[in-house]
Simulated assay, not measured.
Amino acid sequence: GLEAKVGELEANQFSTTTKLNGIATMVVGGAGNTGLGDEVTVNYDVQLNFDTSFTGKDLLRTTLRAGNFGNSVFGSGNTTLETAFGEEDSADSVTINRLFYQFPIGERVTATVGAKVEQPDMLAMWPTAYTANILEIFTRAGAPATYSKNLGAGAGIWWQADGSGFNASVNYISAEGAAEDSRIGAGEEFSVTAQVGYAGESWGAAFAYTYSDVGYVFDNSSNNIALSAYWSPISAAWAPSISAGFGYSDFNTDRPFDESTSWMVGLQWDDAFMQGNALGMAIGSAGQSNAASGRIDTLGVWADPGTNTLAYELWYQWQVTDNISVTPAFFWIENSGRSDTYGGLVKTTFTF
């Protein structure tokens, strides 16, 4: 009888090989001179990651996500102030944000396939130690055209050397708007990324190339390269980690411009003023101002002719408990020829 009851329990329980981890973020803040309103808003973003392993070495990731940043200056409608925690999908609707499968091929190679996978999911390393996650333009290693974070259907493979930090990655992604639409197809609106890098104990660097046919900037295909690096002290000290990156793009266009550049430098002090807390700041290219609309709409890249702008951010993360942190942040965007954009926010993050 006991064996029968145990068998029934095992047959009906949730998979023992699946783990749930989540991030819930609440944000209070606002910004002036954005053209989208200057009132204070309260927004949220929730991500639930279900990680399943069938062999102990593979990974099936399913991510559910919901938020309400759609009408906020921190949402995806404002490419300058879009935050790293803003939700792009329908307000207050739970959607599938990731669905991909990773598995090893031999000892040093990992493959990834997915119906909804993002570019960083298929890179052996992300070449920055700057983890602020405030303004989105500072989360792309100084090269937003190369590290586009294209999301859609894709496949990739990476290799990591045995006993050293050398690695190489290559992946293909068809943007979700094309891959799921029978009128367009998975062979259109795509990006191909190749990266070689080194990730050591205290420093790392990577060179990457992306051919993009998505046209998320200027609606053109482009060839993009990036050189990014970081250094971190082995133990927390007065010296911060230093992250820097540079990007260059060549656009296939008949417009007056055909080239662009981007860059960023980020500093981060761990255990700042108190163990577990962190202090950080960053400066970098904010994009090109659109003279007609007065807005910045090129996601952090500079192209001539145009008005090139700079972005700054300063933040302090207070680790209240192991799973709760509060981060006040201030940002400033220089806008030549018109009033600068400035603002602040307080982000409360729960991890579980």
Rank of each mutant, 00 (worst) to 15 (best):
Y130N: 02
L48D: 02
V46N: 10
N68Q: 09
L81P: 03
T131V: 05
G197A: 09
N308D: 13
D121H: 08
A24Y: 15
A237C: 14
G337Q: 09
V265H: 05
T34G: 11
E39Y: 04
F330Y: 15
G200W: 10
R61M: 10
T253L: 03
G245A: 06
Q268T: 11
S260P: 02
Y316D: 06
D89Q: 14
D271A: 07
T307F: 04
L20K: 11
L345V: 02
V217R: 03
Q317K: 15
V265C: 03
D270I: 01
F74Y: 15
L48I: 13
L267R: 09
T41N: 15
Q319F: 02
A179D: 11
A272G: 06
L310V: 13
Q47P: 00
L99V: 11
P233Y: 08
T298H: 04
L299P: 00
G300K: 05
A161F: 01
W238I: 08
R140E: 13
A143S: 15
T63I: 03
D181L: 04
T321W: 06
S293H: 03
W158V: 00
F100M: 01
V170F: 12
E180V: 10
V73P: 09
T261L: 06
V320W: 09
L9E: 08
V27P: 00
F100A: 01
V170C: 02
F273I: 14
I134R: 04
W263V: 11
N335H: 09
P233C: 08
R295G: 10
L123G: 01
